[in-house]
Structures are given as structure tokens and as C-alpha cells.
């Protein structure tokens, strides 16, 4: 068993365990913390997969920004015991949902393990036209990523900025107390 496999297995176990933690904890704070662990473990996956920049971005954006926001809201709404106070009106869905999820995972795993060997297409791999190539395997490849982002995908990248601006405006509008209400 190589080191690679060992590392993968450890990170995979961590990711799955923390993922289960997200949905299993009754307290929303614990769920949020589990999600942070899960996101960090994914960042580790990205490191293993040579994606240094993405790993860093994952840590910065998700762990640093998004999860902080989550924790703020969780604490602000003090909803940690919300589900304990009310009864589940569609409790049958608890069982059905779990079974459906397990079947989904099992079926996908079955396909991936037994039948569908998804191998990189040799022709596609050799083609320079179709993909932006990783320049030097093993290194960070951040330069290649930058080239891809600011050349081939410049327009989608710019559109993303517009989406973020729209989201900020939306959040401001939603978060603001309505004037009529404040005048009451």
C-alpha cells in the first residue's frame, strides 16, 4: 500500500465521517463545525490532486468566508434546538430519505467499481486544442491555471463577478428592515 493510497484513505475517511457529522448532529453549531472539517478534508484532496491554488481557495473562501457566515447566522438565530422542540410532521420521510440516499450511493459506487472504468481518453489527453494542459506535473500549476482563467475562461470569470455583485445587492435588500416596519 503506497503512501498515496494511505493518504487518500485517511482523507476519504475523514471527509465521509465529517459529512455524516453534518447531517447527524442535532445541534446546528456542531453541523457547521463538521462541515468545516469536511471542507478542509476536501482541500486536502485537492492538494493530493495537485490543485494547490484551488486547495488554498477552498480554505480561504469556504472555511474562511462562507462558514464564518454560517456560524454567525446559526448563533444569531439561536436555532440549535429548533428540531427538538417541534415534532416531524413527515417522519416517514426520515427512513425513505436515508434509504434513497444509501441506494443512490450504492448504485453509483456499484457502477464505478464493477462496470464503468472511467479512463482518460487517450485521444483527448494528447490533444492540445481541447484542454489547457497542466504544464509540469508535480508542481503547483498555478501559472497554467492563471493562463486558463484569464485567457480561455475570461468571460465566464468576469460574469462571476457580476453574479457576486448581484448577490451582495440581494443580501443587502433582504437583510434591510423594511421602512414601513421600522416606522411602526
Amino acid at each position: 500500500m503506497s503512501a498515496n493510497i494511505l493518504a487518500f484513505s485517511a482523507v476519504a475517511a475523514l471527509a465521509i465521517a465529517s459529512g455524516i457529522g453534518v447531517i447527524a448532529f442535532r445541534n446546528a453549531i456542531y453541523s457547521a463545525l463538521s462541515l468545516i472539517v469536511n471542507l478542509l478534508s476536501l482541500a486536502l484532496f485537492y492538494l493530493i490532486l495537485n490543485g494547490m491554488f484551488i486547495a488554498a481557495a477552498q480554505v480561504l473562501i469556504y472555511a474562511g468566508a462562507i462558514m464564518v457566515l454560517f456560524l454567525f447566522v446559526v448563533t444569531m438565530l439561536s436555532s440549535d434546538k429548533a428540531e427538538l422542540q417541534t415534532s416531524d410532521r413527515i417522519s416517514w420521510q426520515r427512513l425513505v430519505g436515508v434509504i434513497a440516499g444509501i441506494i443512490f450511493a450504492a448504485a453509483a459506487s456499484f457502477l464505478l467499481l464493477v462496470h464503468a472504468q472511467i479512463a482518460p481518453d487517450a485521444a483527448a489527453q494528447g490533444s492540445n486544442n481541447l484542454f489547457t494542459q497542466i504544464s509540469a506535473p508535480g508542481s503547483g500549476n498555478t501559472e497554467a491555471f492563471g493562463m486558463a482563467l484569464f485567457h480561455g475562461f475570461l468571460f465566464p470569470f468576469e460574469v462571476t463577478s457580476a453574479i457576486i455583485v448581484a448577490a451582495i445587492l440581494g443580501a443587502v435588500v433582504l437583510g434591510r428592515r423594511s421602512r414601513a416596519k421600522s416606522e411602526d
Binding site: I90, Q93, V96, G97, A100, G101, I103, F104, A107
Partner: peptide
């Protein structure tokens, strides 16, 4: 959540 379940059933 019921509606989400129907999406899942469709995916299944």
C-alpha cells in the same frame, strides 16, 4: 422536503 424527495426519486 417532499418536493426534494421527488427530485431524488427521479434521479434514482
Amino acid at each position: 422536503r417532499n418536493y426534494a424527495l421527488s427530485i431524488v426519486i427521479g434521479a434514482l
